[in-house]
Write a protein that binds this DNA or RNA. Structure first.
Lengths: 119, 119
DNA sequence: TCAACTGTTCTACTGCAGTAGAATGAAACT
DNA sequence: AGTTTCATTCTACTGCAGTAGAACAGTTGA
């Protein structure tokens, strides 16, 4: 089951992924301070997240709980990028990134380990 | 100089990147057959691409030439994804992709080559 | 010379993500 | 009981990417 999150929804999910279960009120406070959203905007977006199953809400105090995980969303977004920009070839995306970004020796070492463990 | 392309504009650029310099007429034909666009839609999008400098147009026959390259666009889109979903950490994106193990044996082989040539 | 054709531009509608003001309703205080 | 407060919902506007019909202009053929 794949749930596509819009940018506004991601802002809310980001809070939950960082803070863990949180009340809507608190999320509204954070986003007001962080991106200047009116509290009603935050509530509207939270409701959309609930409607599409990205957030669950439980007693006591109607706490919001992230159902969709950050990793799921990362995978979805990344797969979309790979399909849109790299003709579905994941290795080309990796190759491109490695071409632009110079990794530290430490990171290279880690990467070599990861890759050598691949089947 | 970074030029953000919308999805519709990408459709046009994709033709140019694949086919090389091409007349607007031909692009319209291809996109009509490929995604059902009316020819005026294609012309409108081409004009937007020209306006933002992604496409240049030259005589004879008003041939469209891709100014922005596929690699530039890949880099822009990928960087945006990394900032949006991975807190700006490119190596984390790479690690995630490798963690999903959605790579084919050929892709893994290529990747091992790339990584072993690093540094 | 004019008519038909067709590549190109002009203009405008549409859907939807993003945003938030007004309304609601339930607790807290007097 | 009445009033104030404040979390939450209801409702609706806005901007813009996406799309294309109608108008225009240049060329071809009669």
């Amino acid at each position: 089951m794949e749930i596509k999150l819009f940018d506004s929804e991601l802002k809310v999910m980001d809070i939950l992924w960082k803070e863990g279960d949180t009340t809507a009120k608190r999320i509204a406070e954070i986003l007001k301070e962080q991106v200047g959203w009116s509290k009603t905007t935050t509530y509207t977006v939270i409701k959309k997240c609930i409607a599409k199953g990205a957030i669950g809400r439980y007693d006591p105090d109607f706490v919001c709980h992230p159902v969709v995980t950050r990793e799921q969303t990362r995978k979805l977004e990344t797969t979309e990028l790979i399909n849109k920009m790299y003709d579905g070839a994941a290795d080309q995306l990796v190759a491109s990134i490695l071409g632009w970004k110079s990794l530290s020796p430490e990171e290279i070492k880690k990467l070599k380990e990861i890759v050598s463990n691949l089947e």
